[in-house]
Write a protein that binds this DNA or RNA. Structure first.
Lengths: 219, 219
DNA sequence: ACCTGAACACCGTTCAAGT
DNA sequence: ACCTGAACACCGTTCAAGT
C-alpha cells in the first residue's frame, strides 16, 4: 500500500506540507518521520541533518517562483513583475516564508532571482556597483514587506487584532498613534507592497547612470 | 556572595547577554537558570514562560533606542535620523535583532518609534493614510536591511564567505552574477543602508500631499 | 512569597545492529 | 544500501513539596 521509497524529495515535501499546516515550530525530525510512517532514523539516510532539511524546504519553494517579466518591457515594469513574482510565492507558502528568507541558498534556485534582476538593471544602464546597490535596496524592502505580510513582523496595529476598538495603549502618551489608529489597525498588504515598490522604482529611475543604453538595448 | 534577588529584569538581562555571546539558539530556560545559578523552576516565579522572556528581551533592547532627531530640522533629516537610531541599536545587539524584529510589542518601548515617525510625517504634511503607508515602506526597508546586516538574510555573495575567489556556482548559467561577482561578494552595510534610505526619502518627498504645511508647522 | 526536584512529553543525533 | 531501536544529552512546563 505504501511501497513508495523514501527520498530526499519526499522528506522535503512532507516538511513543506507540515509547515504550511502547523507552522515552522511543528517541524521536527521525529514528527516528519511519523508523518511519513517511518522511523526517525530512516530520514538520516537521505538528509544529513535538520538544517539541511530546512535548506531543502527553502530550495523547493524558491524553485517554484514563476517569472513572467517581459524582456522587451521597460525595466521599471520588469522590476515590478519580478518583485511580484517573489511575493506570489510567499503568498502561496506563507508559513514557509520565514524559513525561505532565512536560509541563504547558493544553489541555482537561490541565484536565479538575483541573476534576472541584475540582467534587467544592467540593461537599464546602471553601472555595476549601482546595479548591485539598487538590487539590495529592493530586496531589503521586499523581505521586510513579506515578513510583515506573513505575520512575522509588526503591522503597527497598536492593540492586537482581537482587541477592543479603542485599543489598550495609552492614547495620551501616543497621540499620533491614537489619531491614526484607524489606519494602523488594518493593513492592505498588497496595496502597501505596491506603494513602497513604486516609491523605490521612481527613486531608482533618477539614480544617475550611464546614458548609452537606457531602455532599449542597442548593441 | 550572591544575595541579589532573582527578578524579571535580571532574567531578561541574562538572556540578552547569552544571546549576544552565543546566539539566540543557545537560549533555553535551563541554560539561563544555570547562568544565574538557580534552579530552572525559579525562573517561573518571575516569567510566565519562554515566549514572555523573549518579549522581555525585545522590550529591553527597544527601550535603549536613543533618538536624537532635531524637531526643527527638515522632515527628511528627521526620518534619516530616526532610521539611523534603529540601526544603531541593531548594531549594538546584532544577535538579538532577529528576536527584536520578530516579536511585535504593544508596549511603550515598542510604540515609541512609530509615534515619533508618525509625528514627523504628519508635520511634513502627509495625509493620514499616506503617513502610515510611508512609514510602513520605510520600516519594511529598514527591517530588510537590518536582517541582512546581522546575517539572517542573504547579502548575495554567490559563493559563501570562505570560498575561493571564483566561487563555486556555474558562471555560464549565471553570467550577470559572475560579472558582478566583485560587488556581490562584499557588502558595505552602512553604505547600502544609506543608499536605499536616500532613495526612499527622495521618493517620499514627491508623494503628493496637503500643501498647507510643508516644512514649517504653521498651526 | 519564593524556591525547588521529580516527572512528563518532547527534541536532534550517534551508534550498533539488523536486512 | 537502506532501515531501525536504544541510548544520550538536551528541551519547556506541570505539579507537589518545601521554606
Amino acid at each position: 500500500m505504501k511501497p513508495e521509497p523514501l527520498s530526499r524529495e519526499r522528506i522535503v515535501a512532507a516538511a513543506v506540507d507540515l509547515i504550511e499546516r502547523e507552522g515552522a515550530d511543528a517541524v521536527s525530525m521525529r514528527r516528519i518521520a511519523t508523518e511519513l510512517g517511518v522511523g526517525v532514523m530512516s530520514l538520516y539516510n537521505h538528509v544529513p541533518n535538520k538544517s539541511s532539511l530546512l535548506d531543502g524546504v527553502a530550495e523547493s519553494v524558491m524553485a517554484q517562483i514563476e517569472f513572467h517579466d517581459d524582456i522587451s518591457a521597460p525595466w521599471q515594469e520588469q522590476v515590478l513583475a519580478q518583485a511580484r513574482a517573489l511575493r506570489q510565492i510567499a503568498m502561496h507558502y506563507p508559513r514557509c516564508t520565514l524559513v525561505v528568507l532565512t536560509r541563504q541558498l547558493r544553489t541555482p534556485a537561490g541565484l536565479l532571482p538575483t541573476e534576472r534582476a541584475l540582467a534587467t538593471l544592467k540593461r537599464a544602464g546602471f553601472e555595476r556597483d549601482q546595479a548591485v546597490s539598487v538590487l539590495r535596496a529592493f530586496v531589503a524592502y521586499i523581505v521586510g514587506c513579506l515578513l510583515r505580510e506573513v505575520g512575522v513582523t509588526s503591522t503597527f496595529d497598536p492593540a492586537g487584532g482581537g482587541g477592543s476598538i479603542a485599543g489598550s495603549f495609552d492614547a495620551t502618551l501616543f497621540p499620533e498613534t491614537a489619531d491614526l489608529y484607524g489606519w494602523l489597525a488594518t493593513c492592505d498588504h498588497e496595496a502597501e507592497f505596491e506603494f513602497g515598490l513604486r516609491m523605490l522604482v521612481e527613486a531608482a529611475a533618477v539614480v544617475p547612470r550611464a546614458p548609452s543604453n537606457t531602455d532599449e538595448p542597442q548593441s
